[in-house]
Design a binder for these strands. Structure first.
Lengths: 206, 206
DNA sequence: CGCCTAAGATAGAGCTACTATCCAATGGCT
DNA sequence: AGCCATTGGATAGTAGCTCTATCTTAGGCG
C-alpha cells in the first residue's frame, strides 16, 4: 500500500507519518522508485504500537525511539523487556551510578526469593528507599513484605501475557500496556485506601 | 522583606517569582505604596511549596493552582487532601461522569472494610478496572485483596504524617510529597517484581 | 540628586509534537 | 501524449507550557 492508504488504515495523518519516519520510529517503506514507496502490514502494526505508546502509555518520542531501536536491532527479549520496563515505569530518573544497596532492599529480595543481582529496577528501588529515609518517611519491613508479596503475584500474571507471541512489536505492545495498566491500578487502589483512611480520620473530627 | 530578598532566600529568580504572582500561585506582597511591596515568611513557605510541587512531585502550574486556591479559600482539610490526592496520584484523567461500579471494586471495599461511598478515588478505580477488563487483562480478586491489604497499611502510615501540623501549606507539602513518594515506591517494587519474574522465565530459555 | 527597586505589561526563548507548505520528480490513468 | 495525484525531502510554522528578559513609570533612600 502507499502512504495515503497507510494513513487511512491507521487514522494517522500523512504529515504525522512523515514525522515518525523522520524520527526513525517507523521504518521507511520499500522504495519502488524515486517517488513511490510501498508500505506493508508491518508498518500498520508499527504505527499501532507507536500510537499506543504515545497516547495510552504517554511516552514521548525519545522514549519510544529508545524501545523501538532495541527491537529493530534484534536485542534479546529480556533486554527489550527491561528497557520497556525502565521507560514505562519511569525508572530512568531514579537510576543512579554507584547507588548503595539498602538494608530494606536486601530484605525484600530475600523475603521474596527474587534473584539477587544488580539491575535498574533494583537500583531504582534502593534510590527510592534512601530518598524516603532522607525525608523521614517511614517504611517498616512488614509493610514492604506485604506489598512485595502482592506485587509479586501481579508481576507473574502480567508477564505471562507477553510470552504468547513471537512478534517483537506485539511483545512490546502487550508488555508496555500491561505494565502501565497495572501500575495505574496500584495507584488507584492506593488512592482509595488513602481516601478511606482520610475519611475515617478527619470526618469525625474536622 | 522585598522581592529581591525573597528571591535570594528561596533561590528563585525574581522573574520566576513575578511569574508565580501573575499566575496567582503566590499571593501579592503587602503593598507599601505604588512601587514597594513587603513579603513575609508566609511567602517563603509558599514558594517552597510551589518548588516542591513543581520539581519533586512534577505538577504543572494549573494543577498547583487548583490545590493552592482550595487552601487559600479555607476549604476543609478533607477536601484539600482529596484534591491533593486527585492531582498527585493522577486521578483526573480517570474520573468519569456516571461510570459504573464494578464487582471487583465493591468486593475490595467490602474486604477492607472501607467506607462504601462515591468518591473520585472509587470512581477512578472502577474506571481502571473496566478499562483493564476491556483489554483482557485479568485480575483475580485474591490479588486485589492482597494488594489492597498492603496498600491499606501504607495509606494509614502516610496520612498520619499530615495530621501533625495546622498550617495548610505544610499539610499540602507533606501530603503531596508523601503520596508521591509512596506511589513511586510501589512502582519501583512492581518493577523489581516484574524484572525478577522476567529473569527467571526468560533467562533459562531465551 | 541619582541609584536602586518596585509593579505592570509585553515580548521572547526553548522545548515538544506535530502540521503545513513547497518542491521537483514521476507513475499511471485517460 | 499529457496531466493529475502522489512521493520523498526540505523547511517552516503552530500551539501549549514554563519560564526569562526587557521596558516603562514611579518613588524611596542615602
Amino acid at each position: 500500500m502507499q502512504l495515503k492508504e497507510l494513513s487511512e488504515r491507521t487514522a494517522t495523518t500523512p504529515a504525522s507519518i512523515k514525522y515518525y519516519l523522520r524520527e526513525g520510529l517507523l521504518p521507511p517503506g520499500e522504495t519502488v522508485h524515486a517517488t513511490r514507496a510501498r508500505y506493508s502490514q508491518r508498518h500498520v502494526k508499527r504505527l499501532e504500537l507507536i500510537h499506543a505508546l504515545r497516547h495510552i502509555v504517554h511516552l514521548n518520542i525519545e522514549q519510544i525511539r529508545t524501545i523501538i531501536e532495541m527491537a529493530d536491532d534484534g536485542a534479546p527479549r529480556l533486554a527489550v523487556l527491561a528497557t520497556v520496563q525502565r521507560v514505562v515505569l519511569g525508572l530512568e530518573p531514579n537510576v543512579r551510578e554507584g547507588a548503595e544497596r539498602t538494608y530494606l532492599g536486601d530484605a525484600v529480595v530475600r523475603l521474596r526469593g527474587w534473584p539477587d543481582r544488580d539491575s535498574d529496577a533494583r537500583n531504582a528501588l534502593d534510590v527510592q528507599i534512601s530518598l524516603m529515609e532522607g525525608l523521614g518517611i517511614s517504611m517498616p519491613l512488614e509493610l514492604l513484605d506485604a506489598y512485595s508479596q502482592a506485587l509479586d503475584t501481579i508481576a507473574g500474571l502480567d508477564l505471562s501475557l507477553t510470552t504468547a507471541t513471537d512478534d517483537v512489536d506485539d511483545i512490546i505492545l502487550t508488555a508496555a500496556v500491561g505494565m502501565h495498566m497495572h501500575s495505574q491500578l496500584v495507584l488507584r487502589l492506593l488512592a482509595l485506601a488513602q481516601a478511606s483512611h482520610a475519611i475515617r480520620r478527619l470526618e469525625i473530627a474536622p
